[in-house]
Design a binder for these strands. Sequence first.
DNA 1: ACCTGAACACCGTTCAAGT
DNA 2: ACCTGAACACCGTTCAAGT
Lengths: 209, 209
Amino acid sequence: MSSITGRRTVNGVLAVSRRPGQRAGLHRAAVLAAARQLLADGGAAAVTIRAVARTLQVAPNTLYSHVDSRTALLDTLLDDLLAEVTAPPPDVEDPVAGAHALMGSTYDVLTAAPDLVPVYLNRQGARGPNAVRLGQVLDALLERAGVDPASVPEARRVLIVHTIGAAAFATAPATEADATPPLPAHQVRGSFHHSLHWLLTGITHAPPR
Amino acid sequence: MSSITGRRTVNGVLAVSRRPGQRAGLHRAAVLAAARQLLADGGAAAVTIRAVARTLQVAPNTLYSHVDSRTALLDTLLDDLLAEVTAPPPDVEDPVAGAHALMGSTYDVLTAAPDLVPVYLNRQGARGPNAVRLGQVLDALLERAGVDPASVPEARRVLIVHTIGAAAFATAPATEADATPPLPAHQVRGSFHHSLHWLLTGITHAPPR
DNA sequence: ACCTGAACACCGTTCAAGT
DNA sequence: ACCTGAACACCGTTCAAGT
């Protein structure tokens, strides 16, 4: 109860039983793990500095020894997610199919945490190493598919916008009508793949001048 | 200074010089106008209940006499924006061109307040009368364009996802690389129109079974 | 370097009470 | 019906100080 690592309850609030100078033995990895748990349990809104600190039995401001800001923490969480995207091997036979698979995997991964995506959209394109890596893979595939190198950034952008937009929408009901019932998730995923095909067809067959 | 409608400064904080029971003569329209101003000046994050109240020289909780919640207020703001979308006449000659114009106008309108879009994406598809109206117009155009009625909801969804996603991305720099410089706004808008064309081509020429 | 206490400047929302 | 005062339960972040 009053051991160095124990808890103390003051006014019904969980308090820290450490005095200034005593270490909690926290690492950045532990902070990220706690944040990921909160994300899984309560969505992006639940990932607050104070909630993470509460989970770790630590004063809120200690987190700033391991993380720059709440925004940076959410950035890290998102880029961590992107690490799970499976990219095709660079020498895959069909580069168009490869690009399709890459965006499909991205959709599936982002869909696992759909409310992280709007948070990501909210900021101005700060991105982590995994996002950069995936972008480079996509660029290479598009070039191999015959897209004019000058048009690659635009094509990349179109595909990413669509994939992220679709993922952000994935959990929303129907898109606007009261009349039509919400589509089931597998059908939403299906229409994403349709539209992805249409975009890739347009990009490779009717490239922008 | 101490008139009924005047201001009083207490500890450097603007206070209200009205006592409980005295009316401020507030209407819902005035609340919305103040909120719109804050949105224009400081983005969606600046539209807080307390900031709107401050603008109107009113206690924060009086806003709840005119608005259900902050979320509902933001919903209203977004749907108001959509009122400015120009829809083609229902009997427009070319329904595909009509649908293209409709989504193009939506993109332009949403782009004027891009940081409202993520807020909108964050919630689960609550939508106002203007969104419903535009959805119905789009449905009619798609059906006239020869899309199988059973596929209309999916087609509508694809177009809306892409348009909203593109608008949300419109102010972000380049999409992930450090290498490529950010595209200028007119070019971003151009690639949106390209991709819109590709999607409409796919929807009308290669409809999903 | 890591951590706490205290503080600053905020939030949305509810509830009772006043006219 | 409209509005205030007070309160509740939060936020992110900074700063000084302790080891």
